[in-house]
Design a binder for these strands. Sequence first.
DNA 1: ACCTGAACACCGTTCAAGT
DNA 2: ACCTGAACACCGTTCAAGT
Lengths: 182, 182
Amino acid sequence: MGQRRDEVLQAAIELLDEVGIEGLTMRVLAARIGVRASALYRHYPSKQALLDAMVVHLATPGADPQAPADAPWDEQLRQTANGLREVMLAHRDGARLMSTFHTPGPEAAAGFHNLVAALRTAGTTPDAAVTAVDTVLAYVNGHTLEEQTRKTDARTWPRDRRDLAFNNGLELILTGIRATLP
Amino acid sequence: MGQRRDEVLQAAIELLDEVGIEGLTMRVLAARIGVRASALYRHYPSKQALLDAMVVHLATPGADPQAPADAPWDEQLRQTANGLREVMLAHRDGARLMSTFHTPGPEAAAGFHNLVAALRTAGTTPDAAVTAVDTVLAYVNGHTLEEQTRKTDARTWPRDRRDLAFNNGLELILTGIRATLP
DNA sequence: ACCTGAACACCGTTCAAGT
DNA sequence: ACCTGAACACCGTTCAAGT
């Protein structure tokens, strides 16, 4: 059951990659799978629900390189940050799509908690751990959204140059976190 | 000349505050100033041009608390970061509006360059200064976008609690920058 | 210079009706 | 269970025509 639902989701992601988030409309998506727009509402109650499902699908680890839970906190933050950015850059308007996500589910909260736990074992207070993780995630989202949407010089840089810029900023934050450690 | 153009801009900002970015349409905006939608295109070539003008207008310092150019680099970064967040939070969907901004103008580049210069006098390399400023701005945009749009626990926190969370993250980054200083 | 009227080519969503 | 047809209430934008 629900395989048609997945077919809609799959087609939506393909359409996103071809035309961007602006061109992703219920009517065009429906046409792509040989159906009328109204039929999509049997599978998703609204366009926003479909967009949310796309975010969850893309952000779900799958076989992503995830650092083991006993890895050092900075390695875990690096992996999460790079993985998140990777997912966004892998799809046209990926960052903008993520930014439309309204209600983070339990799996997002779980990933968040794992990172906080890793920092806590390094000796931070609970509050400091939350601040650290929040800061890294806000940086990743802000940086990648700008990298992918803004018409700035950096947009024309080659990928490895942009990776370097991103990681330099990330290391800056990790250094800041390290300084608050006992 | 152009005072009608400013009237449109003013009305657009008022409408944004009342109905949000979703409800900000050319037709409703036109009705508000007693005109048809098509008349707006005498003043702005497109809706995107109007949105860009709104961002420039809101982000233009005006009489904002701006740190003097000879203030220490961290004080300047704090002022810029808080000022930017303040502007976003002062308007409904302010952060989302800013994120639609496609082509940063020369005034944005000038503000950026001032911050880089402040860091350079503190002894950083040019590259490190750019990274530091980029990182702070990405954090502010990412954090505020999340603060204003995401349906998370933090959204219901009182303002002073949210200010604290924001500033804690900011100080984390400033500490990281400080560690790279000679 | 500034605005209207009318049109063009679209949107998301609902709902009775069909199979 | 899943889809169609038709409609509702909208969009941004263009362009000839009016004053």
